[in-house]
Computed example of a mutant assay.
Amino acid sequence: MPEDAAEPLVYINVIEAQGEKIIAMCDEELLGVKLVDGRIALHVSERFYGGQLVPLSYAITKAREATVLNLVGENVVNAAIREGLVHPEAVIRIAGVPHAQAVRMLY
């Protein structure tokens, strides 16, 4: 997969369990960061979010295959909104950083 220097890099981790495809994605600079906002805390852990470091466009292509999405960061959340994978009203901010989860029901 060719790398475009102008395109943001993001981490993507694909977890397949019990017939579900869970995809966790975060902006490159957020991996390992703990976001704290009042009583809400989110650890962007390497164990859950760390996987492959890939161009954003590739990650979004993979995100279309997910039954569950877990996204952290301006780049990944905004791209998911543009692609119709996440509704803008489903986004929360933790310490100013956007976070969204989406579940797609397959019948």
Rank of each mutant, 00 (worst) to 15 (best):
P2H: 12
A66G: 04
V44W: 04
Q101K: 09
Q101T: 10
L69Q: 09
M25I: 10
V91Y: 11
V54Y: 01
N13H: 08
V14D: 05
L106N: 00
L42A: 13
E28I: 06
N78E: 15
E46C: 03
V86H: 07
R47C: 04
I15A: 11
V97T: 13
E28R: 13
C26I: 05
V14Y: 01
I94L: 14
A95E: 11
V103G: 05
D27F: 05
Q52C: 02
V68E: 10
S45M: 02
M25E: 02
E46Y: 09
V14S: 07
E29I: 02
A100R: 08
L56Y: 00
L85D: 14
E16L: 02
Y58E: 14
V86F: 05
A41N: 05
R104T: 10
A59F: 08
A90F: 13
A102S: 14
E7H: 13
Y49P: 00
P98I: 15
A41Q: 11
H87W: 14
A79N: 03
I92H: 14
V77P: 12
L31D: 03
E7S: 11
V91G: 10
I22M: 08
G19F: 03
D27Q: 03
V44A: 06
E3N: 07
E28L: 05
M1Y: 07
V103E: 11
A80K: 09
E3R: 13
E28K: 14
K62I: 04
A24W: 00
I60K: 07
G96K: 11
H87D: 14
P2A: 08
Y49S: 00
L31H: 02
I40V: 13
I22H: 14
R82N: 13
L42I: 15
K21C: 10
K34L: 05
Q101M: 08
N78K: 15
H99G: 10
E29V: 06
R82W: 10
A100E: 08
H87F: 12
H87R: 15
F48H: 11
Y49H: 08
A63M: 12
D4V: 06
V36D: 01
L35D: 04
D27P: 00
M25C: 07
Y107G: 08
I22S: 03
G32Y: 04
D4R: 07
G50W: 10
V54H: 02
L9V: 08
Y58Q: 10
H87S: 15
A102H: 15
L30C: 05
R82V: 06
H87Y: 13
R47A: 15
R39W: 07
L106S: 03
V54E: 03
D4I: 04
G73Q: 06
V33P: 00
Y11D: 06
G84N: 05
L42M: 15
G38M: 03
V103M: 11
G38A: 01
D4A: 08
A63S: 11
D37I: 02
L31G: 02
R39V: 06
V10T: 03
F48S: 03
D27I: 01
M105E: 12
G96T: 13
A41L: 02
L9P: 03
E89T: 15
R64S: 04
P8C: 09
A6E: 10
L71D: 09
L53R: 15
N78T: 14
P8F: 10
I23K: 00
